[in-house]
């Protein structure tokens, strides 16, 4: 009797939402659990690192790795799982693009550590103690992983076979991916497992978007009463939909919030943030630099807005400082 295919889930710099997404499969999860043999799932099961290390290379059919890569421990696991697995799926926005953790690429590692351990209001650390990567305590050496200077997407560390986009990926696309894997019906290596067409395709507000958009100001969601029917971009909100892959059925716009771009760009775009800028600012009204600047002031944090999930994949990769 052939063994059930072995499946591993691992989380790097992650919020746990991607694990939740797997659980969100609800009853469908039973079909998955029946068909596969889960050999690693830190959030739910008690397999140890040594268990995984002991396995032969390539013995795991699929490893779903979520979270960005920020520490040496995450790198180690990613590299190890790459050896142990035949197929590695980069799972979720953090693994695909760097995700929210990648916003740290705007700051020097030292500045972050200083803020967290010394300057943050509420921190009481007069001796300025910092955790160390290695310390000897009662004769034993205890180590902590090294925090890297840069937050990386998974494919900037290991070779990735497929990408499941989203923050988190929706149960629907997870199920579709799992089924494709089990049936052996996967597309070309490197494919993002979601339609290669932007979000407006799926969005119910599409028809209300005027064909002659000429924006005079940008607003943030808390500044206006958001009309639940009208196109969000037309209302002056920064909706990344046009620059973002579909597949999520436009959940955020359906929830009366603009798309923030978590599915990443289409395959034809190198840099999602830059392309969105190229598009949305072509459609603003003013012609004089001073008037243009007033409109741009409505977006006080452009990097955080246009690269909310994708800073690791920005062509410039991180802030130079």
């Amino acid at each position: 009797m052939p063994d059930k295919p072995k499946v591993a889930f691992y989380w790097c710099a992650s919020c746990g939402g991607c694990e939740e997404a797997v659980v969100d499969l609800a009853e469908d999860i039973l079909k998955v659990v029946e068909a596969v043999d889960i050999v690693l799932w830190p959030v739910a099961m008690d397999f140890k690192k040594t268990d995984v290390e002991a396995r032969p290379d390539g013995s795991i059919a699929v490893a779903f790795i979520n979270g960005a890569v920020r520490t040496s421990e995450q790198e180690e696991w990613a590299r190890m799982l790459r050896r142990k697995a035949q197929v590695v799926v980069s799972f979720g926005a953090c693994a695909n693009l760097g995700g929210i953790p990648a916003l740290a690429n705007q700051f020097k590692k030292e500045d972050i550590l200083k803020f967290v351990y010394e300057d943050c209001p509420g921190v009481d650390n007069p001796s300025r103690t910092r955790p160390q990567t290695s310390t000897v305590d009662e004769g034993r050496t205890v180590t902590l992983p090294e925090i890297r200077n840069m937050v990386r997407s998974l494919d900037q560390v290991i070779d990735v076979d497929y990408y499941l986009p989203g923050c988190p990926p929706t149960p629907k696309i997870i199920m579709a991916a799992v089924q494709a894997i089990l049936a052996g019906k996967l597309p070309a290596k490197g494919t993002v497992l979601s339609p290669d067409i932007a979000l407006c395709e799926e969005c119910k507000r599409k028809d209300s978007k005027p064909a002659d958009l000429s924006l005079t100001e940008f607003k943030r969601p808390h500044q206006i009463q958001i009309d639940p029917e009208k196109c969000l971009l037309a209302q002056g909100l920064v909706c990344m939909g046009p620059a973002t892959r579909s597949g999520c059925e436009a959940l955020c716009p359906s929830g009366n919030m603009p798309c923030t771009g978590c599915f990443g760009p289409s395959s034809r775009v190198k840099d999602q943030g830059a392309k969105f800028v190229s598009s949305v600012f072509s459609n603003i009204a003013p012609k004089e630099a001073a008037d243009i600047d007033k409109v741009l002031d409505g977006i006080p944090d452009p990097i955080g807005t246009f690269y909310r999930y994708g800073l690791s994949k920005c062509i410039l990769r991180r802030k130079i400082n």
């Binding site: 067409i197 932007a198 599409k206 958009l213 949305v280 072509s282």
Partner: peptide, 13 residues
């Protein structure tokens, strides 16, 4: 055509 999502960003340009 098969790549266009109908966002209309281009139409007024």
């Amino acid at each position: 055509e098969e790549e266009c999502c109908g966002c209309k960003s281009c139409v007024p340009l």
